[in-house]
Amino acid sequence: MNKKAISRNLYILYTLAHLKKKAKVRGTLFGYFWWIIEPMMLIALYSYVVGMIFGHKGTDQILMIAVGVTLWKWWSMSMSSGTKSFRRYKDIVCQVKMPLPILPASEVFGESYMFFFAYLLLQTALLYLGFVPDVLALLLSFAISTLAVSALSLALAMLNVFIRDTDFLVKFGLRILFYITPIIYPASRVPENFQFLIELNPFAYLITYYNNALIYTDRVEYGNMFYALVVSAIALFLLVRLCKKITPQIIRNV
C-alpha cells in the first residue's frame, strides 16, 4: 500500500470517528458529560454494593471499580457498535472502494474520543489521591486494549454479516462478561474452581494491566504486557487479511 492510500485511509478513519463523536452528543443536554455522569453513577452504585453489602471497603477498592467501570464502558460500546458497523454503513460497503476494516475501527476510535473525557477526570482524582501512574505501562495498556478491542470488533462485524443473531448475542455476552471480569471484585476473591474463568477472559488481563499502571505500579510486568501487545497486533493483522479476502462475500451478504 502506497503513502497516498495510507493517508486516504487514515483520513477516512478520522472522519468516521469524528462524525460518530458528533452524532453521539448532538441533541443531548449534557453532551460529552454523559460519558462522565453515567460511569460516576455506576461507580457509586457498585461501590455501595461491594462496600455495604459484601463488606469490601477501602480507597483502593473504589478506585479499582472506577477504573474498571470507565474502561468497560469504552470497550463494550466499541464492540457493540463495531459489531453492527458493516450493516450500519451498508451503502458505504457496497459503493465505496475502501478497506472494510476501517469501519469497525472507526467505532473503536469514535468511542475513544468519549473515553478520553472520563479518563481525564479519573486520572485527576488519582493524582489528587497520590497515585502517580507508570506512564510506559499506561501507554502499553492503551495500545494493547485498542488493538484487542479493534480485533474483536472486526471479528464480530464479519460474523454479524453471515449470522444476523450475532448482535443480540454480543449484547447478552457483554453483560455476562462484565460480571465475570474482576471489576467490582479483585481476582483473588474468585474461588479456586472458578479461576479458569479469569484465566480465559482477555478483559481480566486488560483490567489488571490498567490497575497496575494506575494504582499498583510496583506490580507492573512489562514482559507480559509486551507479549500481549504482540499477540493483539498479530490477531488484528490476521483478521484484517481475512476481511480483505472475504470482502466480496461481505458485500453480497451485508
Rank of each mutant, 00 (worst) to 15 (best):
N2L: 07
K3T: 15
K3P: 09
K3S: 15
K3L: 15
K4D: 13
A5L: 15
A5F: 14
R8W: 13
N9K: 11
N9W: 11
L13G: 00
Y14Q: 12
L16V: 03
H18M: 15
A23M: 11
T28A: 04
F30T: 07
G31S: 11
I43A: 01
A44I: 09
A44M: 10
Y46W: 11
Y48D: 10
I53D: 07
F54W: 12
G55K: 05
G55I: 03
K57I: 11
G58A: 04
G58P: 03
D60R: 15
Q61A: 11
I62P: 00
I62E: 06
I62L: 09
M64T: 10
I65D: 00
I65K: 00
A66G: 02
V67P: 02
G68C: 05
W72Y: 08
K73E: 12
W75K: 10
S76V: 06
S80D: 13
K84F: 02
F86K: 05
R87M: 10
Y89V: 01
V93Q: 05
P99F: 08
L100G: 03
P101I: 09
I102Y: 04
I102T: 07
L103T: 01
S106T: 07
V108N: 02
F109Q: 08
G110T: 05
M114F: 13
F117I: 04
A118F: 06
Y119Q: 11
L120E: 06
L121K: 06
L121M: 15
L121N: 08
A125G: 09
A125W: 09
L126R: 05
L126N: 04
Y128H: 13
L129S: 07
G130V: 01
V132N: 13
P133C: 06
D134T: 07
V135H: 06
L140P: 01
I144H: 03
S145Q: 10
S145I: 09
V149M: 08
L152R: 02
L154K: 05
A155S: 12
A155C: 13
L156P: 00
L159E: 12
N160G: 01
V161I: 07
V161S: 05
F162W: 04
I163Y: 15
T166P: 01
D167G: 10
F172S: 14
F172L: 14
G173D: 02
L174R: 02
R175Y: 12
I176P: 00
L177I: 08
F178I: 04
I180F: 08
I183Y: 01
I184D: 00
Y185A: 04
P186F: 02
A187Y: 04
A187C: 02
A187T: 01
S188G: 12
R189F: 13
R189P: 00
V190K: 04
Q195F: 05
I198P: 01
E199Y: 13
N201G: 03
F203P: 00
F203Y: 10
Y205L: 13
Y205T: 13
I207D: 08
Y210L: 14
N212R: 11
N212Q: 14
N212M: 03
L214Y: 03
L214D: 01
Y216Q: 12
R219H: 15
V220P: 02
G223V: 10
F226C: 11
A233E: 06
A235H: 11
A235C: 10
F237T: 12
L239K: 05
R241E: 14
R241S: 13
L242S: 10
C243F: 05
K244C: 14
K245T: 11
I246F: 03
T247D: 15
P248W: 06
P248I: 04
I250V: 10
I250D: 02
I251P: 01
